[in-house]
């Protein structure tokens, strides 16, 4: 049974000085699903991401990925196992071109790139694959543009292309549509749907229509704890969730 869950946390807790950001969280993410993590500001969503990828050290608890404990692994190792994250602030390499951005991820497959004596030409073999990924996210015409010059929505698309270049088994997306114009939101959610075709996605998202449209399962967090879990319909009908979102006195 446990094989059905690609990621599992047991009693995951993160305490900062006098403040518990994530408390006793036991989360299970089904293989091949799109799982959304929602909740009001400060509910611990981003902290949870940071714990899963070991950008933060958990105070207590365990993280299992593919049945294997990864609680103590370093972030680069976790990425190499196939659990790759994105960031809330769009994470691109600003002064590298769009092609180079994607190629940096593809380059990882060569193993470690400590070969400082080789010409850049040895990476030309990756260009074709990089272009395919760039086309897939609709950035074909920007191939040689520096990432810093892309509009915000396009940066997120580039970030997703870079993440997909690693062909991760599981993607963690931190607010993929935050701060985006309407048509960009649609393009990115279509992209996520396509990307999730043969992998698992765990995402933090505020845009509830995106959550409704994309996710198979939703976990609602509040003050570091799991408040509710289920599909969109059951979660959105849950009175506790409504209260958490709208405050007491409503619903």
């Amino acid at each position: 049974m446990s094989d059905d869950f690609i990621l599992e946390t047991r009693g995951l807790t993160k305490e900062f000085k006098g403040f518990v950001a994530v408390q006793n969280m036991s989360l299970k993410v089904q293989r091949g699903s799109i799982h959304a993590l929602i909740g009001p500001n400060g509910a611990g969503k981003t902290t949870c991401f940071n714990l899963l990828t070991h950008f933060l050290e958990p105070t207590r608890g365990q993280i299992l990925y593919n049945g294997r404990e990864i609680t103590g692994s370093n972030p680069a190792n976790i990425a190499r196992l196939g659990l790759v994250r994105s960031f809330q602030i769009s994470a691109v390499f600003p002064h590298l071109s769009v092609l180079e951005n994607v190629r940096i991820a593809l380059q990882r497959k060569r193993g470690a790139s400590f070969d400082f004596w080789r010409a850049l030409r040895v990476l030309d073999g990756l260009n074709q694959q990089a272009r395919e990924l760039i086309n897939a996210v609709g950035l074909a015409e920007y191939e040689n543009t520096a990432a810093v010059e892309l509009p915000y929505g396009r940066k997120r698309a580039l970030e997703i292309a870079t993440t997909l270049a690693l062909d991760p088994e599981m993607m963690l997306l931190d607010e993929p549509t935050a701060g985006m114009a309407h048509q960009d939101v649609e393009r990115i959610s279509a992209l996520i749907k396509k990307a999730a075709h043969n992998r698992t996605v765990l995402m933090v998202e505020h845009n509830l229509s995106v959550v409704e449209h994309l996710s198979d399962r939703i976990t609602v967090l509040q003050r570091g704890e799991i408040l509710a879990e289920g599909d969109y319909k059951s979660v959105s009908a849950n009175p506790e969730v409504i209260q958490a979102y709208l405050g007491s006195g409503h619903g």
């Binding site: 680069a76 390499f93 940096i104 380059q107």
Partner: peptide, 18 residues
Amino acid sequence: GQVLKAIRENEQRAISLG
């Protein structure tokens, strides 16, 4: 050099790429 530039540009992202 390419990886080095990536680290200069965005260290966290370079880590998250493994």
